[in-house]
Amino acid sequence: MSPQQPVRAALASLLIVLPAFFAAAVAADAPIVGREAPDFALRAAHGPNVRLSEHRGEVIVVSFWGSRCSTCAAQLQALDRSYTIFRSAGLEILGVNVDDDQRRAAEAAGGYSLQFPILLDPQKGVSRDYRVDNLPMTVLIDRDGRVRYVHRDFSKPGETLYLQELRGLLNE
C-alpha cells in the first residue's frame, strides 16, 4: 500500500541522469517497540500466502522460530493454547520459521499440529526487518499495527506476562 511504501526502497530505485545522490535513508537502530510493525508477505508451509497488513484490526502475535531451537517447541505449544482461547476475541498468530531448508521447516511444523499458520522466511528478510537476534522471539502487535511487546526466549513467568499483555491488547 503506497503511503506505507518504505521510503528506503523508493530511494534505491531512483535512476535519473544526474547521479543518484539521495542519502540512503538508513533506518535508525532504534528498537522496534512502539513503531509500526514492518509489513510483509510470506508463503505458508500449508495454505495460502499471508500478508501481515491484511490482519489489521486484530491483535497479531508474530513468533520467530527454528526447527533446531530447543525451547521453540514448547513455546509454539503455549502459543497454540492461547490461540484456542483468544482466537474469537480477535487474536491471530503467525509462526515464522527461519530455517534455510523449507522442507524441514514444513515437516517440523506439521509435527506440532498447530492451529495457526506457519510461514516460511528462508531468505530471512522479515527476520532482519524485525531484528530477530534470538530464537524464539515473539512480537505482539496491537490492532493499530504497532509493535507493543517483544519477548525473547520462552519461560513460565514469561508466558504469564505474555498472557497478561495479550489480554490488555485484546481489550483495547
Binding site: 503506497s2 508477505a41 510470506l42 495460502p48 500466502n49 499471508v50 500478508r51
Partner: peptide
Amino acid sequence: EVANYLYTPREVAALIKGGVQRLYLGNLK
C-alpha cells in the same frame, strides 16, 4: 530485479473481480 510480490487470496479475489494492481512504481532514464 525490482519487484517480487506474493499474493494472498484476498488480493487474488480482487484481481479476478476486475481490480488492476499497481505492482511497481519507479524511475527510469
